[in-house]
Design a protein around this nucleic acid. Structure first.
Lengths: 402, 402
DNA sequence: TCAATTTGCTTTTTCAAAAAACAAATCATC
DNA sequence: GATGATTTGTTTTTTGAAAAAGCAAATTGA
């Protein structure tokens, strides 16, 4: 049991291929990696010795493809989930959540605590995260090897982990990385990520119908604010200074449903939850909560239907701008605001096709599959992805080292 | 002189490093590549034998860094431009242009011919390109090795090279790849690229102030239509079906300066050249050409100044949407429409800062440095980039093989 | 003149991957 | 049930790229 181990390039590639495939025989893996079976055999052996891969218990069931299987059946090899763990956290407006996923990508630990985010002190949030991290680690195997912690936060960050603007939390120019380093110590590497970006990865990382590389996805996170994450070739596009995806601030119209003297007509002043409720209040002359609005919409009340229709039109307009710019293969609507979409799906699609050039491929529009834990899980998946990609060599640390 | 040669991974990496650096000693190259000097020596030797690299004639001038140089000076090694050639073509609305660049990235051949693009037959364009290709090849050394031809076209393409929509040319669902294969034969690989994308690469490929990987660039090509190209990490983002960057069709306002009943208020109906002239005609009650407009603007005529101001306001609005989505480090304005920008630069920047969130980094806005040959040169650079990148092994063909 | 430094080359060693060969485990067919 | 075809997994041998180690050459600085 080595304190810290490093993987050679082809070992990392083999792990990534196993993760993609779920499980495969040595021969299939060799074909996948473009190596010979002999090399792959050694590769699997060393991965198994490192505790990162293992032969599947239900051996000799190698009926993966529906072909007329002939020849000696292979022994399925899969990732050993216990080989490594990745921590993800989400500092939200109402909750702080910490999760752990294992090397196989499965959620293995979770802890959360209510948090009055708006106007809170960053130090409190960091303290809570640290406590939750301890709770989550307690749920993992004794000698669990941790690769680090990735924290999803609303707002945008610079490359060093200084959050300049988290308007919703009331934080400005806070150096979260330093705060975390102080509380968690030097042995726990901490990364920071925009929450919409984290959700985007959570939504796409485990979906791989055929080839993740081709499927560019745009994830639109709709809460009171609107954020975006763009996944291209399976990787997150962050932009210079990691601020890409601030699509809520995109100028779209002249006014917006809610008043913003400074920057009127931004995307989120039309399609954020606040904006939708403001529009409903304007039409129906009655202020309601979001849940009440959904109920009214389901009941077919005219003010709600009208407001949802207006919301859908502006959503389509914003999506059209994004689609022209990015041409994603699919758009995924996330955040609780997406519950409105099913009621206006056909209208939104109709508007979209009028906005887009004739012949331009219209992406599919889907609803999020990750729940409220999405940002935390996505943050953890980002570490997982980094570990299984070639760029940086994979470093493991013992949990005990803390 | 091998008919066709393939490079090993580290040879490709060494070539790419030499291209980045311009020229460097074996020892400096070894540090750059993370290899030992002994390995690098062999690498350079094999590259030299393949005719792809050579020691620089003005030997022993190794004063590249301004340090207190001590020790034995290195012999500078540089790319041998004659090692390979890359052809790029541009089928424009008024011209067809073909250029050749060499392995060192230098333009080594050029030929062009007027072309009445609108309403023309695709077959004619292909025939002209083939003729110009022969002209350009005649300007190259006898035994020039060609890696292929990349053709930049206005409009958008699918992954196989079928151009679905080139509205400006009046082409629909034309399979250009097949047409080229028929005329140029199977020994000349032909690729197709969107013209704005090609310009984007032309604008960024040779600029590398510090690190190209970090500098995401958005190139906005302003002619009658408006196209966009986005370079992230030195690579073009194409989108699913290669249609990303159709930013001219982005819905931005309700009407636009020129009337479009189908899709009113698109970006290019505000900032395309036609749109600008329409605005000027509306204000000044007088129709002028673009050159006349520029003269009037330079003379400070009020109608022109007013129209340019309106143009700048919508340009800022469109750029703001793009910047929120992509967060590029710099925006490069290309196409002849960019000549208006210097007159309204301060206004555009002021508008931009009101549209963007406080604290959000405002990208620099620059004017294109590549002239009218930009699309053709960019197309050729794309082949160059592919040859010097790891993804596909580098295949060379003799020009004589045609 | 002489030490210090850096370069470029040669020789030897290491090690990941390929190549070749073969036993084992299955299916298809007679 | 026997036989051949097919595929898998392993072992042994070979290849070849890169590292390691060592050294002469070319420069600066004292």
């Amino acid at each position: 049991m080595p304190e810290s181990s490093e993987l050679r390039p082809n070992e990392t590639r083999a792990l990534a291929a196993l993760f993609r495939a779920g499980a495969s025989s040595r021969a299939a893996l060799a074909r996948d990696l473009g190596l010979t079976r002999s090399t792959t055999g050694i590769l699997v052996q060393s991965l198994a010795e490192a505790g990162l891969a293992r032969e599947r218990s239900d051996t000799a069931i190698a009926e993966q493809d529906g072909e007329g299987r002939v020849g000696r059946p292979g022994i399925l090899v899969e990732i050993d989930g216990d080989g490594a763990f990745f921590l993800g956290a989400y500092i939200g407006v109402n909750w702080i959540i910490v999760v752990a996923i294992d090397l196989a990508g499965k959620v293995r630990g979770r802890a959360s605590r209510p948090f009055a985010g708006a106007g809170s002190a960053p130090e409190d949030a960091v303290t809570i995260v640290a406590a939750l991290v301890d709770e989550v680690i307690a749920q993992l195997p004794r000698d669990a090897r941790l690769s680090g912690l990735n924290v999803a936060v609303p707002g945008f960050l610079d490359a060093d982990g200084t959050t300049y603007h988290a308007v919703i939390l009331g934080w400005h120019r806070i150096n979260l990385a330093t705060l975390f380093a102080r509380v968690l110590g030097p042995d726990m590497p901490v990364l920071l990520e925009n929450d919409a970006n984290a959700v985007a990865l959570a939504e796409t990382y485990r979906r791989r119908p055929d080839d993740q590389a081709s499927g560019d996805s745009l994830v639109v996170l709709i809460e009171n604010g609107v954020g975006g994450g763009f996944i291209s070739g399976g990787r997150l596009h962050r932009g210079h200074l990691r601020g890409a995806g601030e699509i809520g601030h995109m100028p779209l119209g002249d006014e917006g449903f809610i008043h913003d003297a400074q920057r009127p007509g931004r995307f989120e002043t039309y399609v954020g939850k606040d904006a939708l409720l403001a529009r409903h209040a304007y039409i129906g002359r009655r202020a309601v909560t979001f849940d009440m609005f959904l109920a009214a919409l389901a009941a077919g009340e005219s003010a709600a239907v009208k407001a949802a229709g207006d919301w859908g039109r502006w959503l389509a307009r914003g999506l059209a701008a994004l689609i022209c710019t990015l041409q994603p293969e699919r758009v995924i609507l996330a955040g609780s605001g997406n519950e409105v979409y099913p009621f206006v799906a056909t209208q939104v699609k109709a508007f979209l096709s009028t906005y887009l050039v004739e012949g331009y491929p219209v992406p599919s529009i889907e609803l999020s599959q990750s729940g409220p834990d999405g940002p935390a899980i996505g943050a953890a998946f980002l570490l997982h992805q980094a570990a299984l990609s070639a760029d940086p060599p994979f470093q493991l640390r013992n949990a005990a080292a803390r």
